[in-house]
């Protein structure tokens, strides 16, 4: 049930990214909301949920736009799972770790996607990729990381409570 919520929230952010965020682009740059979400989810909910949501949402992004299906799914799944490694032992009220991880993974994902789709086909030079795509996107993603993480930090305990309540009610109904 929690995984369904994870996917629904991720889908909402994905749709936000491909529609509304383009209207709010700063110098044409938009943040990668799915990556931000997968990082936050991995930290808050652990490797399994982070990896699963990353896989499903990445696959949806690939099916919606990508020419290489499975590429984003692979990266988002690994990012979600890696962030989950920090799930047990970190102070959730501190923002440095989510910010650091977002910057790091945004850089890695940006470089990998640029390498596959721009540098190897000879469309763009390495320095062009770094200056025009990767660095601006990393900065903007870090800026968006803060509100997304704070909102998730606040609503995830509520979701947990709601899911538990729903399960209890279903169990009660079955006993009756």
């Amino acid at each position: 049930m929690r995984r369904v919520f994870d996917i629904l929230i991720g889908l909402f952010l994905f749709l936000l990214q491909i529609t509304i965020l383009h209207r709010m682009a700063v110098y044409g740059i938009i943040p990668d909301l799915l990556l931000i979400y997968v990082v936050s989810l991995g930290l808050i909910a652990g490797s399994q949920r982070g990896g699963f949501a990353g896989f499903v949402l990445g696959l949806i992004q690939d099916l919606y736009f990508g020419s290489l299906i499975g590429f984003s799914a692979l990266f988002f799944m690994l990012i979600g799972a890696c962030c989950g490694l920090f799930h047990q032992n970190f102070d959730r009220s501190r923002l440095m770790l989510p910010l650091g991880l977002t910057a790091c993974f945004s850089m890695i994902y940006g470089l990998a996607s640029s390498l596959f789709f721009l540098i190897i086909p000879g469309i763009l030079s390495f320095s062009g990729c770094i200056n025009q795509r990767v660095i601006p996107s990393v900065i903007y993603s870090c800026l968006f990381q803060v509100p997304v993480y704070v909102i998730m930090f606040l609503i995830y305990p509520l979701i947990k409570k709601a899911v538990r309540g729903l399960k209890d009610r279903l169990a009660g109904a079955r006993e009756r």
Partner: peptide
Amino acid sequence: MRRKTVTYLWIGIGICLFLMLLSGLLARRF
């Protein structure tokens, strides 16, 4: 990371690589 999670991860990586192979090299558009 638990062994179960690692197993799931390997399955996920396998699926992703298989899909990338199909769509990239064999030009399947799904």
